[in-house]
Simulated scan of single mutants.
Amino acid sequence: MNTPTLETERLILRKFTENDLKAMYLIYSDKEVNRFLPWFPVKSMEEMWKLFEERYMAQYTRPQAYAYAVCLKKDHIPVGYIHVDVEEPYDFGYGLRKEFWHQGIMTEAAIAVTEQLKKDGIPYITATHDRNNPRSGGVMKRIGMEYQYSYEEQWRPKDILVTFRMYQLNFDGQEDRVCKKYWDGSEVHFIEADI
């Protein structure tokens, strides 16, 4: 089953639906929330609909997909999202409306999703964050991910040079495995000693 619904103490994680477009717009249109993400904030409901179709409806047609709306149990309205690619490098990404920052919501949601991934046989996950956004790295650390290396990338479509930190969490016991995709794909890569 793709994108199985998950429940935590405070949250419901489920598929996005057409009824969520207004809530999604609040997440994807906010400049601060999207500051460290590769895409520009959406500017209209028309753009939001297109993103919903491309990023979520397309995912939900696949046999295996992890594209979650992060909802508070009290009203089931999405306040954030988590997605995980089901192909290498099993990229793990997330976003959260800023009025819900610093409450442990994303960590709580991410723990639930990683438990599901492990149960479903996903071997590992990777996640990257802009070095200028260490709070995102804090979520990665709190769910057990470990820093592996840093690399530079010219980010599209924003066309800015970003230094990323790559984290990884192995589920299948291969503790020495390190995904080298980003390392190999960047001319500038290095290991920071003070992470």
Rank of each mutant, 00 (worst) to 15 (best):
Ser150Leu: 05
Met106Arg: 07
Glu47Asn: 08
Arg131Ile: 14
Ala23Phe: 09
Glu99Thr: 10
Ala23Cys: 03
Val188Trp: 11
Ala193Trp: 11
Arg135Gly: 00
Lys22Ala: 08
Gln103Tyr: 14
Pro134Ile: 09
Gln64Asn: 08
Phe16Cys: 01
Thr17Met: 04
Glu54Ser: 11
Gly95Leu: 14
Ala23Val: 01
Val42Tyr: 09
Asp176Lys: 15
Arg62Trp: 11
Tyr124Cys: 05
Tyr28Pro: 00
Glu54Tyr: 12
Pro63Trp: 14
Tyr66His: 12
Val42Glu: 02
Leu37Ser: 09
Val79Ser: 04
Pro134Val: 09
Glu53His: 12
Lys22Asn: 07
Leu11Gly: 00
Glu146Ile: 08
Tyr66Lys: 06
Phe36Tyr: 15
Asp130Lys: 07
Glu146Cys: 06
Val178Leu: 10
Val33Phe: 11
Ile195Leu: 10
Ala127Phe: 06
Leu13Ala: 03
Arg97Ala: 12
Ile27Glu: 02
Val33Asn: 04
Gly95Ala: 15
Ile111Gln: 05
Gly173Thr: 06
Ala23Leu: 01
Trp183Ala: 03
Tyr182Leu: 06
Ile125Asp: 01
Gly138Ser: 06
Asn34Phe: 10
Trp49Ala: 02
Ala110Pro: 00
Tyr124Phe: 15
Met140Ser: 03
Arg55Glu: 07
Glu152Thr: 03
Asn34His: 09
Arg142Tyr: 03
Gly121Met: 09
Gln148Ile: 02
Glu108Val: 05
Pro134Met: 10
Met24His: 03
Ile143Lys: 01
Gln154Trp: 14
Thr8Tyr: 01
Asp194Lys: 15
Val42Gly: 00
Leu161Val: 10
Asn170Ser: 12
Glu187Gly: 15
Tyr167Pro: 00
Arg10Lys: 11
Asn133Pro: 01
Phe40Val: 04
Asp172Trp: 13
Gln148Thr: 12
Glu192Met: 11
Tyr167Ala: 00
Lys50Phe: 09
Lys74Asp: 10
Glu87Asn: 13
Pro134Phe: 13
Lys118Gln: 11
Ser29Ala: 11
Glu46Ala: 13
Gly95Glu: 12
Thr128Cys: 07
Glu146His: 11
Phe52Gly: 00
Lys22Trp: 06
Thr17Glu: 09
Glu192Phe: 12
Glu108Met: 09
